[in-house]
Amino acid sequence: MSPASQTFALRPMLPDDVPLLAEIFRGSVQELAIEDYSDAQIEAWIEAADDEAAFGKRLADQLTLLATLDGAPVGFTSLKGPDVIDMLYVHPAAARQGAGTMLIDALEKLAAARGADKLTVEASDSAQDFFRARGYTARSRNTVLRGEEWLANTTMEKVLRAPAGTTLQ
């Protein structure tokens, strides 16, 4: 199916979605991060979904949105608290076709409606260009320990609206 004929839709996460979201997470990391991380780093990263109950609780405790295609989930994003993007993963077969953009656009609108002035994300090396293209700027470089592996990422930020008494330029 060509990208032009695809129509993505949004919906909130349901408890029954967790196993498929764990698979989307694993597939996304394994295929889309392969150029930026070693095999050992990728294996350590995807272990976050090994305990599906904990993975599901993490998503259920946040505002989690799904992108669907013909009713089937192809990606998801989650908002931790009022202003932190915790997760954004799209199945490799749906990558670069608009699902991620739709998810982030919706999350930004919801966060702003809830009073957030900015959003932050710890973007993987593989996701930095995606976020940069949407107006996020790098703030700090980080290393995160996953199992016995160190993974690099970058804290990025996007101003959604100016704090009271200031103007955006």
Results as ranks from 00 to 15, higher is better:
residue 27 G to M: 01
residue 27 G to P: 03
residue 27 G to Q: 07
residue 28 S to R: 05
residue 30 Q to H: 04
residue 32 L to I: 00
residue 36 D to R: 01
residue 36 D to I: 01
residue 38 S to W: 10
residue 39 D to C: 10
residue 40 A to N: 12
residue 41 Q to M: 08
residue 43 E to T: 15
residue 45 W to Q: 04
residue 49 A to I: 12
residue 49 A to G: 14
residue 50 D to W: 12
residue 51 D to T: 13
residue 52 E to T: 13
residue 54 A to E: 09
residue 56 G to R: 10
residue 57 K to Y: 05
residue 59 L to W: 12
residue 60 A to Y: 11
residue 61 D to P: 09
residue 62 Q to S: 14
residue 62 Q to T: 09
residue 64 T to M: 09
residue 66 L to S: 08
residue 67 A to I: 06
residue 71 G to E: 10
residue 72 A to Y: 00
residue 72 A to N: 04
residue 74 V to C: 13
residue 77 T to S: 12
residue 85 I to Y: 02
residue 87 M to R: 06
residue 89 Y to V: 02
residue 90 V to A: 07
residue 91 H to Y: 02
residue 93 A to T: 00
residue 96 R to C: 11
residue 97 Q to R: 13
residue 97 Q to P: 08
residue 100 G to T: 07
residue 103 L to T: 03
residue 104 I to E: 07
residue 105 D to V: 01
residue 107 L to A: 07
residue 107 L to P: 01
residue 108 E to N: 04
residue 115 G to E: 03
residue 116 A to M: 02
residue 117 D to H: 12
residue 118 K to H: 13
residue 119 L to V: 11
residue 119 L to W: 04
residue 124 S to L: 11
residue 125 D to T: 05
residue 129 D to Y: 04
residue 131 F to A: 09
residue 134 R to V: 08
residue 141 R to V: 10
residue 142 N to T: 06
residue 143 T to S: 13
residue 144 V to L: 06
residue 146 R to Q: 09
residue 147 G to D: 09
residue 147 G to Y: 11
residue 149 E to P: 15
